[in-house]
Each structure stands twice: as structure tokens, then as C-alpha cells.
Amino acid sequence: MNQYQQIGFIGLGVMGGPMCTNLVRKSALPVHVFDTSAEALQRLTQAGAIAQDSIAEVARNVDVVFLSLPSIDQVETVCAQLRGAGDRLRVIVDMSTSDVARTRALAESLAQDGIAYVDAPVARTAEAAVKGTLLIAVGGSEALFESIRPLLACMGSDILHCGDVGAGQMVKILNNMMVFMTVNALSEIITIGRRAGLKGDVLFDMLSKGSADSFVLRNHGMKSMALDTFPEKVFPLVYAIKDAGLALTLAKQGDFSPRIAQYTYDVMCKARDAGFGQNYHPAIVQIVDGRAGANAQSAA
């Protein structure tokens, strides 16, 4: 890790906060942090990070900075402030889920200022972020990948080099779209089962013992859908819609019109419009089974 002496991290939310905490604890390097939330900053300083007053101040103190932000809109805004803060910063690593074309355009633009850009979006749950067992899909040159790999290993257990800039985003976007489509399929299965007289938790437990088993069944299905528990601040539906939209854009660019992905996206939009936008995204089951707007705790 000697190639980088000072690390930055911007975006300390549900995923970014625990990711940065692991970076602080495992890297043995100073980690300079910024977030618009004073509470988030306080949590990280208590973990050993160095709080900075602005994005520019982070850039002036670090060799490499990691971003964990809601979308490419925020990434572009933050990068504009980073690039104008001096000449120390050499590498930006975007761990958000972002649009592929805009990611590549941003990388080309930053290269003109001598700043290398790597996309490294993360997959798996908030629990995995806490445990440091995330899947991290990386897009960038082989040399850059190898240089940041030890730092990424502080946050994830599976670090994949997917190809050039943008390839990491493609893998992450398609991973998430597969999750959303599976949640949609599970929504139909649990609805059929419940209407036939099966309890949702019993049904999913039985399915997990056979060939229908999957991570999504055991995590999203058994822990959320079967219990009708869809809390806020756990990958909300609006974030899922954003990622699904990126997948559909990718499909359009490849001259392909997916049916299942499009239908799933439409269902998620209906759930958002029904008031579940900030709830954990498996809340779409309430649209699929017709309970939208009813007490979601009544059918477990």
C-alpha cells in the first residue's frame, strides 16, 4: 500500500460509512473524510478518520479518494470540486453505481488534468459492508487495479477486475437488475402460495432447500418479503429504480428490448408512486399481490 500515503473518502452513508470504517481500521493509513452529514462525520472520526471541512480540503490532503454517492450526478459534481483543488490527488475511485457512458466521459475528462479514474461499484448488502465482505467490480487499467487492490480488499472479500473503465459499472448494473427481476419473480410465487393457503415464511424456507434456492430468496425473500418488513434506509426503492433504469439504458444501447427487466422496472415505479419509494425495494410485493396502500404487516 506504499504507493498511496494519504487516503480520502467522500460519502459516508448506509454503505459508504461502514466501508470507510473498514478502510480506516485495516489500511493503517490516514483516511480523510467528508460528508454533508455532521453525524456521519462524527461516527467516522470516532473510528479514527480525519474529518475535513470540504471536498476541496480532502483533495488537498490525499493521493487517492474513494467516492460512495447516490448517482453519477453527485459524482460529477464532486469530481469537479476535486479536480480544482490542487495537484496532489492522482486517483479517484468511484464506488457508486453510475451511468456507463458518463463514467467513461468523466474518466477521459479527468485524465486531461492528470487524474486517473476507476469505477469500482459494490454489490451485496449493508451487512456485508459492515463485515468487509462486499463484492467489488472494478473497471480500469490493470496497473491501476493492482495499485488500489490492497485498499479495496479492506472493504471487500471478492475484488474483480472486469475490464477498462465502465466495465465495473456494467457488471454491477446487471447484477442489480438480476436481483430486481428475482425479487419480482419471488413476489409472484409468494402471492400464489399465500392465496393457496401457504404462509410466506414456510414457503420460502421450503424453497430454500431445493433447486429454487438463491441468495435473493434467502436474503430479500426470507428476511423481508415473507415477513412483510420493508424498512427505510436499506437500499430504498428509488435507488433500485435508478439502477434498473441504467440497465435498461445499457440494453437500449445494445439495440435490445428486454421484457422481464422492463416489466420489473414498471412494477417498481408503480410501488414508488404508491408511496413506497423510501422503503426497502422488495416492497414491490405489495403491488404484485394487490395490497398497495393497505397495511403491509397483515399478510405474513
Rank of each mutant, 00 (worst) to 15 (best):
A143V: 12
A143M: 09
A143P: 07
L144W: 00
L144I: 09
E146S: 15
I148L: 13
P150N: 10
L152M: 06
C154V: 01
C154T: 02
M155P: 08
G156E: 06
D158H: 11
I159Y: 08
G163L: 13
A167L: 11
M170L: 13
V171Q: 08
N175M: 12
F180N: 08
F180E: 08
T182E: 13
S187G: 14
S187P: 00
E188T: 05
I189Q: 10
I189H: 04
I192Q: 05
G193F: 09
R194T: 00
A196M: 14
G197N: 12
L198C: 11
K199P: 04
G200H: 06
L203E: 00
M206K: 11
M206C: 15
K209C: 13
L217Y: 04
L217R: 03
L227E: 02
T229L: 04
F235P: 00
F235W: 09
L237C: 10
I241T: 08
A244L: 12
A244I: 09
A247I: 08
A247Y: 02
T249P: 04
A251T: 12
K252Y: 07
G254A: 15
D255P: 05
F256A: 14
R259Y: 11
I260W: 10
Q262K: 10
T264D: 03
T264N: 04
D266A: 12
C269K: 14
A271P: 02
A271W: 06
D273N: 12
D273W: 03
A274F: 05
A274P: 01
